[in-house]
Design a binder for these strands. Sequence first.
RNA 1: GGGUGAUUAGCUCAGUUGGCUAGAGCAUCUCGUUUACACCGAGAGGGUCAGGGGUUCAAGUCCCUUAUCACCCACCA
Length: 879
Amino acid sequence: MKLSKNFESKQYEELIYALWEKSEVFRADPHSKKTHFSIAMPPPNETGTLGVHHALFLTLQDIIVRHARMKNLDVLWLPGTDHAALPVNSIIEKQLAAEGLTKHQIGREEFLSRTRKFVSGSRETMLTQMRAVGISADWSRLRYTLDDTLVRVVNETFIAMYKQGVIYRGERIVNWDSVLETTVSDDEVDYKTEITKLYTLKFGPFEITTARPETKLGDKYVVMHPEDKRYVKYKDGDTFKTEWINGEITATIIKDDVVDMSFGTGVMTITPWHSQVDFEIAQRHNLPAEQIIDFHGRLLPICEEFKGMTINEARPKIIDKLATKGLVVKIDDNYQHNVAINSRGGAIIEPQIRLQWFVDVNKKAVSWKNKIVSFKEVLTDVVVNGDITIIPKRFEKVYFNWINNLKDWCISRQIWWGHRIPVWYRIDTDGKEEVYVGLKPPIDDREGFNDWRQDPDTLDTWFSSALWTFSTLIDPALTENMELSFKDLLAGSMDFKVYHPTTVLETGWDIIFFWVARMILATTFMTGQVPFKQVYLHGLVRTKDGKKMSKSRPESIINPIDVINQYGADALRLSLIMGVSPGNDQVFSYDKVQSSRNFCNKLWNIARFVEGMNEGKEISPDLKLLTDADYWIIKKISDAQTLMIKQLDKYQFSEAYDVLYRLVWNDYADWYVEFSKNNTNLSVLILTLQAILALAHPFAPFVTETIWQTLSLKDNSILSSENYFKMPKSNLSRYNNFEEIKNIIIEARDIIHKTGSNETILYYNNSPIIVNYRQAIKRLTGVSDVIEVQDGRGLYLTSTSYHCWLDIDQASARAYISKLDEKIKHQQYILTILNARLNNKEYLRKAPKQLVQDSRLLLQKTQQLLNSLIEEADKFRVK
RNA sequence: GGGUGAUUAGCUCAGUUGGCUAGAGCAUCUCGUUUACACCGAGAGGGUCAGGGGUUCAAGUCCCUUAUCACCCACCA
């Protein structure tokens, strides 16, 4: 087959991907004798389509795993998708609302069937997108968070944690979303600043301030700081009667030091049911809590005439009423305050007290490294002791900070889409509620005793995501057998034994709490192992104006498919790699995509050149380095390869790509290919092309594989399953020979360009090698001839140790003097610096010997160069 | 309130144990259609490395400080 004139990515990508899939080159082999390497793909949410930010992590991980394969490891990259309970639920509810329906009208079953349809469509789209990016995941092991196996593991985990006493059910204050009608975890709450009214109200002898008068309807306690001098005459527990919104009440004074004396009057009333802080005060002082707002966001009957109203309806009416009673002291219209909203869906969060399921993070009941500790302690320990390292390291601080502030994790949700909680209830004969936690409710033969009812709630999405690294490695064939214990499941799963803990987790820093920390929590508990040994955190991909790409601004999201269609998957991948560094955000730009596309085109054309040289010729089977250029490029490639492997091992993607880019463009294309036109050594040309394709393959798999296949570079092999090439030994003096020739060409070219000379001749003597490159020098410099002489004339070349002259006339040479003068000035500057350094006794005493030695050498060289430059300049200076 | 990051060429950014003349891509300008490539080649211009102070033989790199921007956590009744 022949390479077409132009590189048209669209014509090859699908074919190449099909080839990879058919030949199963991405399939992991747990029986392999090779070292095993594993990485679990963070399962993207099945909420529609992927954006370029997904393409970033797919590319990074693909480079990691392709690099590992190139190093001859057995690699498992396990792909998957996430059911994304809350986000998907939110989408479906919005769809329903658009049709004028609610979930209650259609019922749970209908709701779930709609949702399943939506996510499976979404999944198909996403999997197609992933393939389009060229990822080398093991599709035979594709997983989904609602697979039967994963459901089983979720249930086993819940049950095990419950039995261990680290999952409990309790009435706690939770974040309530009254639109989606569910609780959400602390991490899912965002705060939005808002300008609102701040009311100062008269409350008995005190003045209190509030932004939320509607919550004050049931307030009966007034709290102040015990050391507040203004209120010393009031004692904790004192009561007083006062007129309030719905008539006279009896209020009690409470002293508590959480009150900020400097805020407002230093006095506040509390609403324990609807505020975290108030709830904690009430608990400390054993005060009752009363619900004021119901779970749909409407006021309850306790509010009397305001009952049934929404907050927005009631608020002005309450203020009016207070005003007529003369209880409104002041209204500040310009009060800035933070409103809690659900990060998914955007509805306002109302704290509520509810009976919910929680993971206890403080209870010392977790067995880890032969000690009984709390989840918090495990989470801290694994990072402190280096079981897990986080890249970049600064995120360890963020991680520890989060752990320190961590409260019990509310895991139950009232939405329908998700993992149903494995808890069963029934009412006993004496009217008491019985609770059973298990995979299935127990069978009770007695009449009327079998009506166990499953908890209607589902689990937080992140509860199942937390199990991802190991739940995906459990053999699905085993999980159907309910007789097997969880231990049996682990013990019987080959993949788990071989691939867990996974080698590295690659994910975004924005989910370090949601996911990374919780994976550590759940995995250590269930398997006694860490989920991964390293965590590499990438930054976010931002739009050209630096904004976050977000679902709320659909125009900001760039579909990778659009970019791929126009420029190719490799160009997209490379553009995302340019300038990435761990933990730092990056801007997506078409400039980068274009430059990357050009790079792919360069590879393509190099291959076309080699193809042309190769045509109709026999390749000698034994590889022999012949020319200086051969030795030179071999060393360049093997140096670059060593460096790139080192960099990729440290996840320095951008740096490695930079090395590759220079190697391909500045060394291989600009010099070796150019020299091959005159001094061809076909076997080396082909070997070096192969080696370069292998190096580029993790970055740009499609174009490299296309070239590999089209030129049939190695029988019927597939580049994706090749290893990095072992390069033959180079020879430093042959390498240096080529450097000399290069320098001659660069300098001659420069002079000719600067002086505008043409038809010049290059003279030389005392060089044994120049003659070999006569034609190449002619072609690359434009000189009309290269001639050996006893004594040359014209401008003497200063950048080579050979004697070379460029035969240009006096007039042109004079035009070059200003350039020479500049060079002289620069060399003098360097000389000054070097002299100053070497005359510094402290430097000689303290700097490393090698460095001083190098400086001396450089000084010598600089002096030599300077001398010959001055000599040359003088020769042509008009006297 | 606590914390993190950024500040390097017109733009987007590299620069990892401090080491010698600070780099790349894009953009700009000049020259060039030499049969792999105009998605190209050869060159050029462009930087007091945010400001100030310090440590050191040596600072873009380490420390202190100021400023601006971005972000994270906590949350104010």
